[in-house]
């Protein structure tokens, strides 16, 4: 068996540009976690069902276990590490998850946060049923999902209220 090929990639993640040399087969999830040390993105099924590895690729939620890092070149990647403020202050979405007990063990949480972040950006007016359908994209074993739906709905409502108030 020969040494697997490596590829030299330039990845833009959370507005920072990184150069990495990885095997072509390395998934985006593993590259983020183990080459860029952004371990907030979690890996829990590696076949695209559980969604723990969900990140934003050019704004769209996507499974980073179902992308090779090489495919991400030229795209803007956002991970959970990008959500909080520079001072560590939680974003409105993160705050809503905490306030609504939308997480227990927290392992699936980064995936749900990025799913919701991408979804709400596209559908700020989503109602509870739409939110529930999107939440069904990812698996959580702790919460029974209700408080995840609550959290995202709470965040969406606050954003809408804030927008109305400023209008």
């Amino acid at each position: 068996m020969t040494e697997p090929d490596k590829v030299l990639l330039t990845l833009k993640v959370n507005d920072a540009v990184h150069e990495v040399a990885v095997e072509a087969r390395r998934t985006l999830a593993d590259t983020l976690r183990h080459d860029l040390e952004l371990t907030g993105t979690h890996v829990a099924c590696e076949h695209g069902v559980c969604g723990a590895c969900t990140v934003l690729v050019d704004g769209d939620p996507a499974r980073s276990c179902l992308m090779f890092a090489a495919q991400a070149e030229g795209s803007e990647i956002r991970t959970v590490e990008s959500l909080a403020g520079d001072d560590g202050s939680l974003s409105d979405l993160q705050t809503a998850f905490s306030a609504n007990h939308g997480l227990q063990c927290g392992f699936c949480t980064p995936g749900f946060l990025m799913l919701a972040e991408g979804f709400l950006a596209e559908r700020p007016d989503a109602d509870r049923e739409e939110i529930r359908e999107v939440v069904s994209s990812n698996l959580c074993r702790c919460t029974g999902y209700q408080t995840i739906v609550d959290s995202i709905q709470d965040c969406a409502e606050r954003r809408r209220n804030a927008k109305e108030a400023s209008a």
């Binding site: 939620p61 179902l66 992308m67 069904s136 994209s137």
Partner: peptide, 8 residues
């Protein structure tokens, strides 16, 4: 599938 599958 689900939204994150449909985006890719």
């Amino acid at each position: 599938g689900h939204l994150p599958i449909r985006t890719k």
